[in-house]
Design a protein around this nucleic acid. Sequence first.
RNA 1: GCCUUGGUGGCGGAAUUGGUAGACGCGCUGGAUUCAAAAUCCAGUGUCUUCGGACGUGUGGGUUCGAUUCCCACCCAAGGUACCA
Length: 1029
Amino acid sequence: MNYDFREIEAKWQKYWAENETFKASNDSEKPKFYALSMFPYPSGAGLHVGHPLGYIATDIYSRYKRHKGFNVLHPMGYDSFGLPAEQYAIQTGQHPAITTENNINRYREQLDQLGFSFDWSREVCTSNPQYYKWTQWIFIQLFNSWYNKKSDKAENISSLISIFEKEGNTDVEATCDDDTPSFDAAAWNRFSEKEKQEILLKYRLTYLADTEVNWCPALGTVLANDEIVNGVSERGGHPVVRKKMTQWSMRITAYAQRLLDGLDKIDWPQPLKDSQTNWIGRSVGASVTFNVLDAERSRSDQDVISDDDVTSSAVEKPYEIEVFTTRPDTIFGVSFMTLAPEHELVDKITTPEQKAEVDAYVEATAKRSERDRMADVKTISGVFTGAYAEHPFTKEPIPIWIGDYVLASYGTGAVMAVPCGDQRDYDFAKHYNIDIPNIFEGVDISEEAFADKESTIIANSDFLNGLSYKDAMKKIIAELEKIGHGEGKVNYRLRDAVFSRQRYWGEPFPVYYVDGMPQMIDLEHLPLQLPEVEKYLPTETGEPPLGNATEWAWNAETNEVVSNDLIDHKTVFPLELNTMPGWAGSSQYFNRYMDPRNDDAIFSPEAINYWQDVDLYIGGSEHATGHLLYSRFWQKFMFDMGYVPKDEFAQKLINQGMITGTSAFVQRVTYFFTELGNPVEIEQPIRKPFLISRNHFIEVLRGIATGDRSKEEQIKSWIYDILDDDVKSKLDLKQWQIIVPIHTIHADVSLVNASDELDVQAFKKLNPEYLDAIFIGENGEVIEDDNDIYVVSREIEKMSKSKYNVVNPDAICEEYGADSLRLYEMFLGPLEQSKPWNTAGITGVHSFLKKLWKLYSPFIDSDAERSRSVTEAEPTAENLKTLHKTIKKVEEDIENFSFNTSVSTFMICVNELTAQKCTSKAILEPLAILVSPYAPHIAEELWSRLGHSESIAEAPFPKFEEKYLVESSKEYPISFNGKMRFKMELPLDMGKDEIEAAVMAHEKTKEQLQGRSPKKVIVVPGKIVNIVG
RNA sequence: GCCUUGGUGGCGGAAUUGGUAGACGCGCUGGAUUCAAAAUCCAGUGUCUUCGGACGUGUGGGUUCGAUUCCCACCCAAGGUACCA
């Protein structure tokens, strides 16, 4: 009987579902094991072969743990709020809930096909109101909390209020807004209710604040950095500017230190910890305030305020610039200051003479993305504001500049520039001819800055002269504190997380506004469900999409959502229009799986106390600073509130590598005409897209490198050839130039064959904008039928729908089966590394499964009754050696997450047992269990053919026994100067000297030495012999 | 730019503590079987070679009896870089 994987796989998938084989109990005598895969976003494209990689790994581990006697929780769900569904809704008008449901159904079908041991009864879906009720609940908990630095944990806001009532806030140590005023108890008690709310908002763990966003006026929306290409929106190419907007924020900075410290307790990959450490970015230094010199200030204020105000402002405190520096010891080397162009003082201190230049620079900077500004270290730009600050010690005036290398979002958005000690400051000073005072003893700074802290001796620095870095740091901080110009400070790069999105498809905030102040809706009225809207776009007045809803007001008496028309600001109030970001729903889902159908609580105390935390979490490293940091933050908060017993949610984490795809590109030449370098409009522009095959593209690239323009000339002549005659008549090629920039455009890989040849007709069909495109083939002919071939260029990239390089698992499953796909995905290479996908190799693992099946044929072919007697045969020593070698290796591999090598081991095992003609049940039975985590369907089938009526799922894992592997001799590699030359079989119990004697006596040794006497002979018993000489 | 990961045959990769480089699989070549094809099976397959052997793990150095493995410098590729998920 042949290996009929279709029948076998369908049979066992049905069996598992009907028998709820993998349903986990919240109450068990067995030890618990919680294995979790990161849940997917259900995109319209369905699963591609990259998705299951991590799921298969988690599934193998889960199944292994069941064989090892654990009660395993292995759930799956969907992170189903997100941008693509909303984008699709905008384009088609289809409600995202509907597309999302369709996508989820498709995902479920695909997941079911792969034979995962998920407990589907625990499925969650972040866009389901029964689920997001609890996301809203956590938001309210955060709103009702503040961070007490004294107890170093979050506490209920009521404890803060009672402190305010008794003693005001002067003695409170809390993480709060920078502009929080001081007040005493009497003042607090005099505040109006609204004033009290405003103050409390400065302490709450989620709060409203003005934050900078990438605003695209044309689209009426905020864009991710990702959606901005070269300063314009990816969609439509509209301009994008940085702008401030009132939004919800999460006070994650309160947890900065604990998030850092917690990393030591968890078994996560070091690179991931590094990236969180860098993200949090702890640096120790000092904050220093510089006063802006008065003269400059009043001058710049003159044009905006009346004379009266000038006199009154003269007695006020001068403007202060606060900077954070890690090198306060270099303060005597300050020769200028640089503010971020967005810094709030820029407007106020700029002199009238400099105003035009500064304004232009600020405007230009607003168009650049932060990433752009960080990455670009080559171009130095900045503008002098005309204002000066006063050095706190020397009282010298220091010019204040603005420059886009200073980011508003980091530190205070201002730096004290010490050009002799910082390369960026140095370059800036050189570029603008600013002084570079040297404050380091015996260091040459004529070429570059000197940033080495360890070997520094400070000079030209008044009271710091002669001190080392360490001593100078202590001294300067003390002096700064003495004169009231600064203090020692620990600064974190981590910023509070913006929690508002101007989108439709996300969790609504359970918030309404009374007199402009946010009010929370009570738990008993949750979930607050997303309203229906006509359009998913921002409103004409620039409000988020929820602004389109007509039923989106809160009646605070009846506690229900009512029509906007009823808003009277007495009982009916407007609801929040923003929604929560993608990471809201995923920040506690791992805990919700423990008790997913609970309507009274996010989870029961029994459930959380049984499961505690995730034992193994597998997912992509791209989530390092998003999901994985925010989840740790929420977990710590939940821990502070006493809801969860562990302050880290996942003990061990593994990053599976990406599966990369081989993208295909066509080269589009865009062309326009210029005369002496100026673009010229011609009456009948040629609108047809023009695409060239690969070798032409390569020649153009080579031409750019070598200065050879001949290929471009050829392209020009091709373009000229296809012009209409009347256009031709207007062009004199000698006078007119055709400029030919080339854009590479993704082509769907399914349209390209193994020789990289594009199916041009299919491409045109799939991309209607290229219907009348002109394709120039490899031989330089315009492709009409099959007169020439068009070759694409290829590149390895992340597998992604947007890159048109996805490979779908469905067809593979259909042709080879889920077990083959599972084995093949593991066989590709180490789990944690990224690797390219190539379906061709799957035949190898598929034929392995066929060989495995054949090995069990005495149990499968029912007519082979005579072979029954054979199967009871005692296993040979050889059989046992092969089996136990395999048990040892496979067990080690699973524990080390080295699944690729296990697959090889199985292949070797089956090859050996086949060669040994092994038919012994004592060997084949444990082998089926070994294989079962990897290829569960065939293992179940073989198990039942071996005569078992129960599922293999909980069969005990075979026990490795060393005794079957004991060897008496070893084939020693004999090497000369480190190179292996021949081998020699010697007993393992032979001593060092005997081995040396035996080797030296060997005739091949003499041959190798050719009469020389060896300088040295190294003998490592059981390993190797190396002869030097 | 910065942070992280990786670089070994035509391809995916293996080499567990510094000890036989290329396991296992794909592909390719030759053969068996077949009317033929598919499937299956057998043999070979890093490069060069004067057939003795020599060289060989991105490049250049270093440590060592011995380096894919450890150290230094560099090159290349991929991922992340705060609103893609």
